[in-house]
Design a binder for these strands. Structure first.
Lengths: 222, 222
DNA sequence: TGTACATCAGTGAACGCGCGTTCACTGATGTAC
DNA sequence: TGTACATCAGTGAACGCGCGTTCACTGATGTAC
């Protein structure tokens, strides 16, 4: 079936990008071949280079697309809740759910592609796409955090994000063992309940004065 | 140089395992070839199957070896400190340091190999090696946590581990950007200072009563 | 609106390459006497 | 202790395979008249 209409060709390009976002997250960049990606869009491998300059270039677009999907979902969740705290709780709850562990292809690329991105050279398209996408998600989370100023809310969002991403990553790597569910539960408990504070180290290597408590309330809605 | 002494052959096997632990962490399992591994031990690729049944089998041994190295380091850190809180602080501080971000080959396999392990089938040798190794590290950390009983200390260790692992993973994926250092700093602040408690969600999807504060002190030393 | 033809999206064979694994071979090691 | 020989750690060519990428080709699309 050579030569399809321009609208069909554009649709093919989007199908390839969409399938790539899912398959790259599931199997990693090197775990999916160009033939796999084209096959997922119902095409054969030869036409790939009519749409993308290289597999690396597609990886950058696919990662940007995947982060865009996640950001859209996060914004909808925040908007569906009556206040910031409830928005934040919904994001955490969805992120640390059992389906999130199982459905890697539907989940957040920040976790499933972190290792692939870290191993890529600084110039690879995938790296800047990852950084931009992650900054956007951190920004959405910071918008529903509690804190005296924007900097404190950003720090809170970054710490929350680290806990969520680590728990999900480790829950996936230990899937099938009890430890897997314990990661989800322990992280959710720490993020969603008023947690028992970690013990202030008596002789920590880098001791610091206790940070002032955040009591100011902000009013803006993300 | 065919046929070396048995002692030399055993030394070669250990060199291969050691090099694999480092290289697998740096580049991923699929990022290192059998020829690379043998070359790192000063050998040619053909002799590999005299030492290991397959690359997968070696991966299992290498992961176990890498976790063993990390566990030994953690135990020494704990033993070097006057009390549990200081031991915990030292573990967190080393885990979330700048060298830890840079030197992937020397760092903890729980972070660098999590995605590789998660993508492997449940029967792969690497999966059980990873699970056993991670349980050991969680156990060491639980031994220096504060909490009313062993279950609470385990939960605290698991939540701490998620935060540390997530922060390191994300710091590596964003290396070169300011966000990278922010992940280390925000996670360290949350784990090592008495943190400002996360806001109790007013209408969370899964609301729960606030957990009772842990005040009991334990005395045992890990 | 109808015809003639240039464009170009997609096909499938082919390229060079590196992979994990196998195997015939080599010659020092280790052992039996 | 010295000799004869079986063992086997390591070599390097070779295997079948899948990869990313290229390219001559096909024929419907899109356009110029």
């Amino acid at each position: 079936m050579p030569r399809v209409s321009r609208a069909e060709a554009e649709s093919h390009r989007q199908q390839i990008t969409e399938a790539s976002a899912r398959l790259f997250k599931e199997r990693g960049i090197n775990g999916v071949s160009v033939a796999d990606l084209m096959g997922a869009a119902g095409l054969t491998h030869g036409g790939f280079y009519g749409h993308f300059e290289s597999k690396d270039a597609l990886a950058g677009e696919a990662v940007a697309h995947a982060f865009g999907q996640s950001a859209e979902r996060w914004r909808k969740r925040v908007a569906s809740q009556p206040d910031d705290a409830a928005g934040r709780a919904l994001i955490v709850d969805k992120f640390l759910s059992a389906p999130s562990v199982k459905e890697v292809g539907l989940g957040c690329p920040s976790v499933s592609l972190a290792a692939d991105v870290a191993r890529e050279s600084a110039a690879a398209p995938i790296r800047s796409a990852y950084l931009d996408g992650l900054e956007a998600l951190v920004g959405i989370l910071a918008g529903v955090e509690d804190g005296p100023d924007a900097a404190a809310r950003r720090r809170a969002a970054i710490a929350d994000y680290a806990t969520m991403a680590g728990a999900l990553m480790l829950a996936r790597a230990t899937e099938g063992a009890p430890l897997s569910g314990e990661f989800l539960a322990a992280a959710r408990e720490r993020l969603l309940r008023a947690p028992a504070p970690a013990p202030a180290p008596a002789s920590a290597p880098a001791p610091v004065p206790a940070r002032e408590r955040a009591t100011a309330r902000k009013t803006r809605k993300a």
